[in-house]
């Protein structure tokens, strides 16, 4: 019970710290403006004349790719640079409680950003009759995708004291995970790598799991896949901090 309370305490502090600085509001505005622009202008949402949110969800991974590293880069890098980590880790809590609290706070922050896109749903409901099951499934998929990116960003943040390095590493890492299964990438590999390796790399990609959810197919395997990515990254953050917190 005390462990849940410790996670909650860290979680609340971290979430508040987002909203204590203007960063949170800049982030939310940019997030909404960017998804709005990509959905309505680039994909020409209205001209498609179908009441679904595919063009909206299509862009989410790319928006996350750009913005999630910005939301997570400070999680541990800042804590280490300002030495507040020394306070946090000498409190009667375990490292994994602190890691989990921070991860959940950053994920919820992204969930808030995602939740604020509800006017897009309202617009489609006004224009036609979208299948709400498909919409919900798309949101679940997007939330899982965001969580996976957040967990990657938290890991890179724990590897360095520099927020800039953390941002760049998270961007590259997330990009690799996103495009791992993309035909041009797998095509590049098939030329010289054995088939099992190509399929192995492609299986790691975040994209296929997202695409099926976007179409409204809620498969437990996709959820499990995202959960595994997050658990792995959170555990890796734990290991990274445990060995490097002094530096």
């Amino acid at each position: 019970m005390t462990s849940a309370r410790n996670v909650t305490a860290v979680f609340k502090r971290e979430l508040r710290s987002y909203f204590e600085s203007p960063v949170a509001y800049v982030f939310l505005v940019v997030f909404l403006a960017l998804t709005g622009f990509l959905t309505f202008s680039v994909t020409q949402f209205y001209e498609r004349r179908t009441a679904d949110l595919q063009p909206f969800f299509f862009w989410h991974p790319w928006v996350y790719l750009l913005l999630v590293p910005a939301a997570t880069m400070g999680l541990w890098a800042e804590e280490r640079r300002r030495h507040s980590i020394e306070l946090l880790l000498t409190m009667p809590i375990t490292l994994s409680q602190a890691v989990l609290g921070k991860f959940l706070a950053a994920w919820l922050f992204l969930a808030i950003a995602l939740g604020l896109t509800f006017p897009v749903v309202l617009t489609t409901m006004y224009l036609g009759k979208p299948d709400m099951g498909v919409v919900l499934c798309g949101y679940v998929g997007s939330l899982m995708m965001a969580g996976a990116c957040v967990s990657v960003g938290m890991l890179t943040s724990s590897l360095t004291r520099s927020q800039v390095i953390s941002f760049v590493l998270a961007l590259v890492f997330c990009l690799l995970l996103l495009i791992a299964g993309w035909p041009p990438v797998t095509g590049f590999f098939t030329r010289w790598a054995p088939n099992w390796l190509v399929n192995g790399v492609a299986a790691f990609s975040l994209m296929p799991h997202f695409e099926s959810m976007q179409r409204g197919v809620l498969d437990l395997r996709d959820i499990v896949y995202y959960a595994c990515v997050m658990i792995f990254m959170v555990a890796a953050t734990n290991v990274a901090l445990d060995s490097r917190k002094s530096a």
Partner: peptide, 29 residues
């Protein structure tokens, strides 16, 4: 069992004094 004042007195800079102490009190149970 320990109260610790680290070198150079680090804390969470963007928080107010009351909020910061509230957080440490919460983590202390």
């Amino acid at each position: 069992q320990i109260g610790y004042l680290p070198e150079n007195a680090p804390s969470y800079d963007s928080m107010t004094v009351t909020d910061f102490l509230g957080f440490t009190a919460e983590v202390r149970g």
